[in-house]
């Protein structure tokens, strides 16, 4: 079996050696997220601050079409708060008895209202660039939460020799470095009700936590269940090993 081990480690060396060499964008640094690891959970405070950042900064251009307002109870908001949030949104519904579409206030069972009517409207409003939906963003990018945090904090003045076209911005973590989204976060751009200082880093971190939750709302449940399943299986496997040893020992008589 040592041969197999050698092969696997050789494989790792080649594979990792290459990934370091690839790409023009920097690889974002790993952050210490509370939802990493065997027992990972979301920090409710960060989730709620992150929702606030999304709502006040991102929601103007980016949708969250897979998330419903009712889901916000999972980030620690009360039913009343969720109802209030939903009611403050205008939802297009219909057709009514006259066959007309009409507008009504949102309900918790509604999905997040999209900022634009459709993709074309979104492009038209953003110089031809389509602001992607953020529901699954953390799962849909290599690097996940680290990448998103890196992107939000990775805006820079242009590097020497790099020409920035009109309407583009330089970001050291974005593939190709030229991104159509201007740096969305500014120092103290919003005010947190819990008095946390709204630095760019703080906001980037909070909104990344929030979007990690929108991408993988099952993560806490998954990890809690995982521990139980693993413990159970390890014990069961141990018992099976004992039986196996016992049964096979008869053979040597």
């Amino acid at each position: 079996m040592h041969k197999l081990a050698t092969i696997v480690s050789l494989w790792m060396v080649i594979a990792s050696g290459h990934s370091l060499a690839a790409g023009s964008a920097l690889v974002p640094a790993k952050q210490n997220w509370s939802f990493n690891g065997l027992f990972g959970t979301f920090d409710r405070g960060a989730l709620q601050r992150g929702y606030q950042v999304y709502n006040e900064v991102c929601a103007g251009c980016h949708g969250l079409r897979l998330v419903a307002y009712r889901n916000l109870t999972e980030i620690g908001l009360t039913e009343q708060q969720v109802k209030k949030i939903a009611a403050s949104k205008t939802v297009k519904d219909g057709p009514n008895d006259e066959g007309e579409m009409y507008e009504r206030s949102g309900r918790p069972s509604d999905r997040f209202v999209m900022p634009f009517a459709n993709k074309n409207a979104a492009r038209a409003a953003n110089n031809g660039a389509y602001p992607p939906d953020l529901s699954l963003m953390v799962k849909a990018r290599v690097g996940g939460a680290d990448y998103l945090y890196g992107l939000l904090t990775g805006y820079q003045e242009t590097k020497k020799g790099v020409e920035i076209p009109e309407g583009m911005y330089y970001n050291k973590y974005y593939p190709g470095n030229l991104i159509a989204m201007p740096s969305p976060l500014v120092e103290e751009g919003i005010e947190y009700p819990d008095k946390t200082k709204a630095t760019v880093k703080q906001m980037a971190q909070d909104v990344t936590v929030f979007l990690s939750w929108t991408a993988e709302p099952e993560i806490e449940q998954r990890k809690r269940l995982g521990i139980k399943v693993l413990l159970f299986l390890i014990i069961l496997t141990g018992l099976l090993y004992a039986i196996k040893k016992r049964v096979w020992s008869q053979l040597h008589n």
């Binding site: 069961l236 018992l239 004992a242 039986i243 020992s249 008589n253």
Partner: peptide, 29 residues
């Protein structure tokens, strides 16, 4: 093997308990 051979009864009970426990665990799983 000889040790096992000399204490067959203890081995039997242990195996029965093992089998039962594992069966219960497996059924629960």
């Amino acid at each position: 093997e000889e040790t096992f051979e000399s204490q067959p009864q203890e081995g039997e009970t242990r195996r029965d308990f093992l089998t039962l426990a594992t069966g219960a665990f497996g059924a629960f799983g």
